[in-house]
Amino acid sequence: MREFYGVALDTPLMLGTAQYPSPAVLAESFQRSGASVATVSLRREQGAGQDFWQLIRDLGVHVLPNTAGCHTVKEAVTTAHMAREVFGTKWIKLEVIGEEDTLQPDVFGLVEAARVLAEDGFEVFPYTTEDLVVAGKLLDAGCEVLMPWGAPIGSGLGLNNLFGLRAMRAHFPDVPLVIDAGLGLPSQAAQAMELGYDAILLNTAVAKAGDPAMMAEGFARALEAGRLAFDAGPMEPRDMAAPSTPVIGKAFLE
């Protein structure tokens, strides 16, 4: 299993912490799924931040702060610095949002911010697209992990560009790759693992399920299934039927 800046994760599930019906359901979702990373953010302190931080620490998982909502390099870099101090980690999920309807990354700003942060000792997890040229520039900028989107954040549409994601896996065989955003169902998570991806990052699909903890467990099982399938070496698909039961020895019963 590929490591994330020297860290081997127990499970390939990175789980967001937003939009759950209650803190208890959040905690239960982590417990039932065995998620190994929790994404968090920074917002203006209005009283709830301290208890929330205690809840996250009690989960005993790796913490991945994000720069969600940042639209400029300056905003994202400043947020990353604030996150490093508060959460005590060099990890940063770098989001530089470029378009409001799709929450698509501004890949130009992303590469620039990634370079600034990597030079400053951050371990950057860039939220990017499946564009191979951008991916190469992010690696040149110092990123050692790439997080292409499956589909727009919160859409639940799954893997929108299978060709592009497959190409990315093939093009960067040594780079840890995480599908970040857009997954709605465990089958899509299994598909990501079947492609050889190293992990997925989820939030809405779990938090907005009727039973978030049950859905989290569903995703965890799908990830396991997908990984087993990839490791097992899938058969090649073919257009024509090929009988699986031996033809030789079949009785003549006309």
């Binding site: 937003a18 994404t39 968090v40 931040g49 959460f87």
Partner: peptide, 29 residues
């Protein structure tokens, strides 16, 4: 708009009209 590390808060003068942001851990995806 500029990060002020905790260690520099005591040495950071507050000026009239300053925009101060105080951020805390929050839910995120």
């Amino acid at each position: 708009g500029d990060f002020v590390p905790a260690g520099l808060r005591g040495a950071t003068q507050v000026q009239d009209g300053d925009r101060v942001e105080v951020l805390a851990p929050m839910q995120g995806g």
